[in-house]
Design a protein around this nucleic acid. Structure first.
Lengths: 244, 244, 244, 244
DNA sequence: CATGAATGAGACTTCATTCAT
DNA sequence: AATGAATGAAGTCTCATTCAT
C-alpha cells in the first residue's frame, strides 16, 4: 500500500529496527506538517521531534517532498483501511452511509485538520509531482462512498437527478468545512460533540440525498391509501345498504 | 469597507497616484498568491507583475505577510459587497438562499480556487496575526447566509433541529468542495456548467435544509385536511339527515 | 565574446558600477578556483575574497558552476585576444610560431597553472554542460597555431607526414608540461627564466616541426657533391693517365 | 614496490584474504576515481563497486584521501614496473626512447585519461600531503626517460644545449596532450591508431631531441667516413704499390 | 572482521527586507 | 517617491567518517 520508491538512494535501511525509525519519522513528520504546513515545516524540526539527526531523516527519505508524500499517503491509507475494514457490508445503504460519514469525521478530528490543510495546499501545486500520487489516493479514498451512493441510486434510495460527483461534494464538503470551522474557531471538539455532529450531519445529508419526489411520493402513497380505504368503506357501506 | 489594518507602517503615500499603486500591487499579489500559494509566491514576481520594483512593494506594505493579508481581505470584501449589494431583500427565503449560493460559486470560480486555498493555508498559521482579521472577515462573509437561514428557521422553512453552524457548513462545504474538485481534476468549468451546478446545488441543499418533519407535516396536514373534510362531510350528512 | 546567459535570473544588475562588481567577483573566482580547483572552492570564500556577501555573488551569477564557466571563458578570451592582437601578420612562419609559444607561456605563467588544471579537470566532467562551451573555446584558442602550422606546411617549412592534430599536441603539450613541472616543484620562474625557456622551447619544437627529409636531403646533396667530385676527379685522373 | 605510506592506521588486516580486499578496494577506487574525479567519487560508490560495505573501506584505508593516494601510487608503480621490466637494456638510445614512449602511451590509454586527470588535479592541492609522495613517484616515473636522455646526451645523440628538464617536458607533454585531446573529443582510439600515433610521436620527438647540428654532424660524419675510406683505399693502394 | 546505521559539518542557494542614491 | 543593489538568515541536502553489534 505504501508508495516507497526504491530508487538508487544512498542508503535506505531496511532492518527490523529501521521500521521503527521510519514510523518515528513519519509520526514526527505528520505532526510538524500538520502543525505548520509544508513550507513552514523544516527538516530540522522534524528530525528533532523524531529524536534523531537531520541527516538520518534523509537517509530514510529521499527528501522533504517525499517524506511529505509518505505522510499524506499514510494518512489516506489509514482512512481507506478504516473504510474497507469496518464498512458494514450487509447493512442498508443508509447504515453504510452513516458509517462512512461518522468514521471520516472521527478520523479527521483525531489528527486535527492540519493534514486536511496539508493535502489541500499541496494537492494544488502543479510543480510538485505530489498531485499524481494524490489523485489516485483521492480516488481510492472516495471510492467507498461512491459505491454506496451508486448502490443507493440503483435501489432508488438516492436521487438520480444529480451527478454522482456533486453528491460526493455534498457529502465530503460539509465534513471538511466542519473541521475547518472547528480549527479556525480554535474550539476543541469533545468526543461527544463529534458524535452529535456526526449524527446531525448524517441526518441532514441523508435527507439531501433522497429523491426529490420522496415527499411527493409519501403524499401520493397516503392519498392512495386513503382512497383505497374510502373505496373499501364505500363498498362496505354499499354492501350494507342493500341489506337495509 | 476595506479592512485596512496597519496603516502608515512605513510611508504609505496617500496621493491619488499612490492609490493606483496600491491597487496594482494588490492585483498582482492576488494573482501570484492565487497561482502559487503564499510561500511559493516571491515578492520579486509580485513586483514584476505590478510593473514596479521590489523595493516599492515594501514601501506600500510592511511586508509580504501584510500584503497577503490585504489581498485576502480585499477578496472577502468583494464577496461581502456582492452579497450585501445584490441580495434580493424582498425575495423569499429560498430565493435569497439561491442567490447566495449562485453568487458565491460564481465569484469563486472567477478567481479560481487559489484564493480559497490561500485562505485555508494562511488562516491556520498561528504565528501571524492574520487569523484574527480572518475570523472577523469570515463572520461578515457568512453573515448573509446566516441571516437567511435564521429567517428561514423562524418561518419554519428551515429545520431547527440542527445548529446553524452546521447548516452553514452544509452550504459552504459543498461549494468549496466543488471548486476544489474542479481544480484538482484540472477541468475548466464553462459558464453554463457553473450555472447548472449552482442550480443543482441549490436544489439539493434546499431539500437538506427543510425540516425533517416536512413529510410528517405534509402527512399530518393531509390527515387533518381529510379529517376536516370528513367532519364537514359528516356534518353535512347530519344536516341532511334531519331532512330525511 | 562573453557567454552571459540572460535567463530569468532573479536579479542581474547591469549598471555601470555593477560591471566593476562583476569584475571583482570574476577576479576573486579566478583566484580561488585556480588555487583550489572547482570542488574545493567555496562560494563563501569567493565572496569573501571579493569583499562582498555570498548572496551578492549569486545575484550576479546564477550559480557556482556558471561563475566557473565565466572564469574559464574570460581566461580563454584573454589568451585569444592576445593572440589575435599581437600576432605578427607579416612575419615568417617561424616568427609567428615563436610569438605564439612565447605569448602562451607568458600568459599561462602569469595566472599560474591553476586555471590550466581547472580547465583540464572541469573540461572532462560529462555531467557539466561546460564541455560544450569549452570545446568551442579550445578551438578558437588553438586556431592561431593551427593556421601558422598549416601555412608552414603549405610553404614546405613544416613537415607534412604527420597529422596537424599531432603537431598541435607536440606544441601545446610541452608548454603545459613545463608549467605543470614548475608548479609541482614549487619553483617560481623568473621573467628571465621564462624567456629562456620559451626560446629553448621554440628552438626545440621548431626543429621537430621541420620536414624529416631535411637531413636526408642534406646528405643526399652531399653525396651527390662527393660523387660529382669523384667523377670529376676520376675524369681528371683519366685525363692525366694518358699523359702519364 | 608498492608505496605503502601510513601503515596500520586503523587495523589494516594482514591476512591473505585481507590482501584481496585491499586489491578489490583499490581496483574499485581506481575505476571510480578515474571516472568521476576525486570529489565526485563517493566512498559509497567505491564500496559498492568493491562489493563491500562503506565502513569496510575505512577499516582498510584511513580515509578517502589516503585511498586516492594509494590508487595513484599503484598506478605509478605499474608504469614504473613496466618501464623497469621491459626496457631493452642493450638497445640503442633510440630504441629505448621509442620503448618508453610507446609503453607510456599504451598504458595510459588502457586506463583512460581519468587517472591522468586525477593526478593532475590532486597533485596540486597543497592541503594534502599527497604532493610529497607524488613528487617522489613522479621522479621515479620519469627516471627511465631521464636516464635514456642522459645517455643519449653523453653519446652525442641527444642535444645538450637544452636542460634535461625541458626535454622531459618535450616528451611527456605531447603524450599527455594527445591523451587529453582524445578524451575531450570523445574519440575512442583503436589499437592501431595508438600504434600509429606512437610511431609518429617517436619520430617527431626523436628529431626534436637530436643535436641542432645534426645535419652538420651527419655531414661531418659522412666526410670522416669518406676520408677514412679514402685513407684505407690509399693504404690499400700503397700496399699494392710495393708490388709495383 | 564486517557492517548497518547515525551523524556532524558544511555547501549551495533563495528571498524578504533594507538603505543610499 | 522609486529603485538598484546588497545581504542576513535560513533551509535542504550530501557525504566522509564513526561506533556498536
Amino acid at each position: 500500500m505504501s508508495t516507497q520508491s526504491t530508487a538508487t538512494r544512498r542508503r535506505t535501511p531496511a532492518g527490523v529496527k529501521s521500521q521503527q525509525r521510519v514510523k518515528d519519522i513519519l509520526r514526527a513528520g505528520r505532526e510538524i506538517f500538520a502543525e505548520k504546513g509544508y513550507d513552514d515545516a523544516t527538516s530540522a524540526e522534524i528530525a528533532q521531534r523524531a529524536g534523531i539527526s537531520e541527516a538520518t531523516v534523509f537517509s530514510y527519505f529521499a527528501g522533504k517532498r517525499e517524506l511529505c508524500a509518505r505522510v499524506i499517503a499514510d494518512w489516506y491509507d489509514e482512512i481507506i483501511d478504516a473504510f474497507e475494514t469496518g464498512l458494514p457490508r450487509d447493512g442498508s445503504v443508509r447504515q453504510q452511509f452513516a458509517f462512512i460519514v461518522r468514521t471520516h469525521l472521527r478520523l479527521m478530528l483525531v489528527n486535527g485538520t492540519g493534514l486536511c490543510a496539508l493535502v489541500l495546499s499541496e494537492g494544488r501545486s502543479k510543480q510538485h509531482d505530489l498531485s499524481d500520487t494524490l489523485t489516485e489516493l483521492q480516488r481510492r479514498y472516495t471510492a467507498p462512498l461512491m459505491d454506496v451512493l451508486a448502490r443507493g441510486q440503483s435501489l432508488g434510495h438516492v436521487r438520480r437527478d444529480v451527478p454522482l460527483r456533486l453528491l460526493r461534494s455534498l457529502v465530503f464538503g460539509p465534513m471538511e468545512h466542519v473541521l475547518w470551522d472547528a480549527t479556525l474557531s480554535k474550539r476543541r471538539l469533545s468526543q461527544a460533540q463529534i458524535e452529535t455532529t456526526a449524527n446531525e450531519l448524517v441526518d441532514v445529508l441523508w435527507s439531501a440525498l433522497q429523491p426529490p419526489d420522496a415527499k411527493q411520493a409519501a403524499l401520493t402513497q397516503f392519498r392512495q391509501d386513503v382512497e383505497e380505504a374510502s373505496r373499501r368503506y364505500e363498498e362496505a357501506s354499499a354492501g350494507r345498504k342493500p341489506a337495509e
